[in-house]
Simulated assay, not measured.
Amino acid sequence: MAPQFGRRLTGFEQDADGVAARIADAAGEHLIRARFLVGTDGGRSFVRQSLSVAFQGETLGVRALVADVRLKGLDRLAWHRFQRGASATQIMICPLAGTDLFQVQAPVPLDGEVDLTPAGLTELVKDRTGRSDIVVDSVSWSSVYSMNARLADRYRVGRVFLVGDAAHIHPPTGGQGLNTSVQDAYNLGWKLAAVLAGAPDALLDTYEEERRPIAADMLGLTTRLLDEAKAGLMRRNREVRQLDLGYRTSSLSLRGSISEARVQGGDRAPDAPCRGRAGQPTRLFALFQGPQWTLLGYDAVDRPPPREGLRIVMVGNQGDIIDDKGHIADAYGLRSDHWVLVRPDGYVAAILATSELDKALRVYLDRVLPASAC
């Protein structure tokens, strides 16, 4: 179904079999019945409030504007920052890649109206930069907001889930908001698809188990970065890029017998260049694409029996792909007869020995794949 605009959720009720949602539009109110409902409706989430889920946290005493504008007077080669270190009057103007727009970000007083017209923003820029040659021609989008750091007490109530800003809000410092929300959606998305296809409903409990601790840590990080920004500091280190996030403590991370591997269950699956059977260059990430699970057998002899929803890839000179320069072995720390199970969202579920495939792997896949695939 394509996205529907001009519609508003006015209420919902759930029972043991599904959710009945009331939707209002210009033609009146309609009832939609579904097995699950996902609230992605922002920091003021109607879904979260309807569930009476607490949104613990604090207001941080900072109000700011953000506006996507067309302007003249600045080049598009870099971010432009003025009055660095002046927490109340600094202003940042950055080019938005792939567009002809710039984004203006600036703190504003806690009270009072803010003029977001082209003339008003031009005057603000002039006041804070001391330059009259920077002129805002038009405003594509703008907002004034107060910064909060808040986290929903629960991500799931029965058949209803909270995702993105409906589950967590935080300062924009560091730029983790969109990334975290997309990761929420992908984490829940593949699990919902599996359950709708027949996997055990308990798989959905791992959404909150895995994603809520990530958001809690992210709120702490962005709040620290906000304090640094007030002092004129900005940093984009590895922690900010979120490449090391993982789920080692998750109930979906299986502890196998291969302890010497460089990655373990719950770690982000590394990419590595390799070659296809015909010699064509490819990468592991190309093999991981799609909604399926992937089982990599490194220099293994026997291929396990096929299973619906599981892609089996043998790595070796006689296999499906060739690790001719050892990049896969180096990235994962693999030896002969090691197996890597990769989740649909690109995280390692387990590193296993061949002896563990018959029982440990079979029992694990019964938890995450539809019953029809057994």
Rank of each mutant, 00 (worst) to 15 (best):
residue 1 M to N: 09
residue 9 L to V: 08
residue 10 T to I: 14
residue 10 T to G: 02
residue 11 G to K: 07
residue 11 G to D: 09
residue 25 D to T: 03
residue 28 G to F: 01
residue 33 R to V: 13
residue 35 R to T: 12
residue 35 R to A: 08
residue 39 G to M: 05
residue 41 D to I: 05
residue 44 R to C: 14
residue 55 F to A: 11
residue 56 Q to F: 09
residue 57 G to R: 02
residue 58 E to N: 05
residue 59 T to D: 07
residue 61 G to E: 06
residue 62 V to Q: 08
residue 64 A to L: 08
residue 71 L to R: 02
residue 76 R to Y: 15
residue 80 H to R: 06
residue 90 Q to I: 08
residue 98 G to I: 14
residue 99 T to L: 05
residue 112 G to I: 05
residue 113 E to L: 11
residue 119 A to W: 08
residue 120 G to L: 13
residue 122 T to W: 02
residue 122 T to M: 01
residue 127 D to E: 14
residue 130 G to D: 13
residue 132 S to I: 12
residue 139 V to H: 01
residue 140 S to M: 07
residue 145 Y to F: 15
residue 147 M to F: 13
residue 147 M to E: 11
residue 152 A to S: 08
residue 154 R to E: 14
residue 161 F to A: 04
residue 163 V to C: 15
residue 171 P to V: 10
residue 177 G to R: 01
residue 180 T to E: 05
residue 184 D to Y: 07
residue 186 Y to C: 04
residue 188 L to Y: 08
residue 194 A to E: 00
residue 195 V to I: 07
residue 201 D to M: 11
residue 203 L to K: 07
residue 214 I to G: 00
residue 218 M to H: 02
residue 224 R to V: 08
residue 224 R to Y: 06
residue 228 E to Q: 13
residue 236 R to F: 15
residue 239 E to L: 12
residue 250 S to T: 01
residue 251 S to E: 09
residue 252 L to T: 07
residue 255 R to I: 08
residue 256 G to A: 12
residue 259 S to E: 11
residue 261 A to C: 08
residue 264 Q to A: 03
residue 267 D to T: 04
residue 268 R to Q: 05
residue 276 G to L: 15
residue 277 R to K: 14
residue 279 G to F: 12
residue 284 L to A: 15
residue 289 Q to H: 08
residue 291 P to F: 10
residue 292 Q to T: 14
residue 296 L to A: 00
residue 297 G to Q: 07
residue 304 P to S: 14
residue 306 P to M: 15
residue 313 V to L: 12
residue 326 G to K: 01
residue 333 G to E: 07
residue 340 V to W: 10
residue 343 R to P: 04
residue 350 A to H: 01
residue 351 I to W: 02
residue 352 L to S: 01
residue 354 T to W: 03
residue 354 T to P: 01
residue 354 T to Q: 11
residue 355 S to L: 06
residue 372 S to V: 15
residue 373 A to V: 15
